[in-house]
């Protein structure tokens, strides 16, 4: 894990144009943005070669701050937009920034089909267990029993496990980390970016101002400490009993396999016709 100096980080940001950002004090989205930028810096990617696409939500405001090709789309639809870009320009490194509601509720169908196609897109799901931008309604990952502005008596919905969902749907790289583990996040995102195929990184995130307040989880630092104290690396779980694992956030890379990537499959299909990929224009 290389230590990336601040100056390099700034190179990747629309530093003079778009700051300060919209995120609340204590929100972990900025920390994760830092991890993403440092992963990209470590890989020394050219800014012109990256397209960052997002949907709607707090985390989806991220693309406006980075100096790449950026696209802020419709609620839930980042992946189909990204699919169009990737298909048209397979040489672009396409990163999708999405949230729990964006990816698994309104965009759930697109999410599972992007996984199934194994198209080479890195999807980073910033899971803060709530709809923050609209003021705190329960999402598919709000823990059962928790409060949200639309579950004043406690949420009765069971939750989605984003990583299980991604693995079952066919994603070829699936990992989870937390915003507290910023360096681990940087490392996992780097591996996800290097992976050829559809990669999903769930970053467990803190929303102290809404989710934290409604559920008495404390402020930003307390929620970060909760991530530190209540998460375990995948390796450590081998020796843990189900009782010990109860309520724990498991961190690590759950799946990493090589499978034919979608744009490659399309290129194979096209190869029988003897056309050059970028023959025109």
């Amino acid at each position: 894990m290389a230590n990336i100096p601040q100056k390099v980080v700034h190179k990747y940001l629309r530093h003079n144009k778009k700051f300060p950002h919209v995120w609340c004090p204590g929100c972990s989205n900025g920390t994760t943005l830092g991890s993403i930028i440092r992963a990209i810096a470590e890989l020394n990617y050219d800014r012109d070669g990256i397209t960052m696409v997002s949907g709607i939500g707090c985390s989806s405001r991220m693309p406006v701050y980075v100096d790449f090709n950026t696209l802020h789309t419709l609620h839930g639809r980042a992946l189909p937009f990204a699919t169009g870009i990737k298909m048209q320009k397979p040489e672009q490194k396409v990163i999708v920034i999405t949230g729990d509601g964006d990816a698994t509720a309104i965009g759930g169908n697109h999410f599972i089909h992007a996984c199934r196609r194994n198209i080479d897109i890195t999807t980073i799901v910033l899971n803060n267990n709530i709809y923050g931008m609209t003021g705190g309604q329960y999402s598919p990952t709000t823990p059962t029993g928790d409060r949200a502005t639309t579950s004043p008596y406690g949420n009765i919905d069971p939750v989605f496990d984003i990583c299980e969902l991604a693995m079952a749907a066919g994603a070829t790289f699936v990992a989870r980390t937390t915003a507290f583990h910023a360096l681990e996040t940087q490392d996992i995102i780097k591996k996800a970016l290097e992976h050829k195929g559809f990669s999903v990184v769930e970053v467990v995130s803190a929303c102290p101002v809404i989710y934290g307040r409604l559920n008495k989880k404390g402020g930003g630092p307390e929620m970060m400490m909760h991530m530190r104290d209540n998460s375990v690396p995948l390796k450590a779980t081998e020796k843990m009993t189900p009782e010990q694992l109860e309520g724990k956030i498991v961190r690590g890379i759950f799946k990493q396999v090589n499978k034919l990537e979608y744009c490659d499959a399309y290129a194979n299909l096209m190869s029988q016709f003897n056309v050059k990929e970028e023959a025109k224009k």
Binding site: T51, L71, F81, G84, Q88, H110, H113
Partner: peptide
């Protein structure tokens, strides 16, 4: 695509990439 919503979004993405 998986539905019509995805279809319109994919063509907009492709168009932004020059198609």
């Amino acid at each position: 695509m998986e539905d019509e919503i995805a279809s319109i979004c994919a063509i907009i993405g492709a168009s932004l990439a020059g198609a």
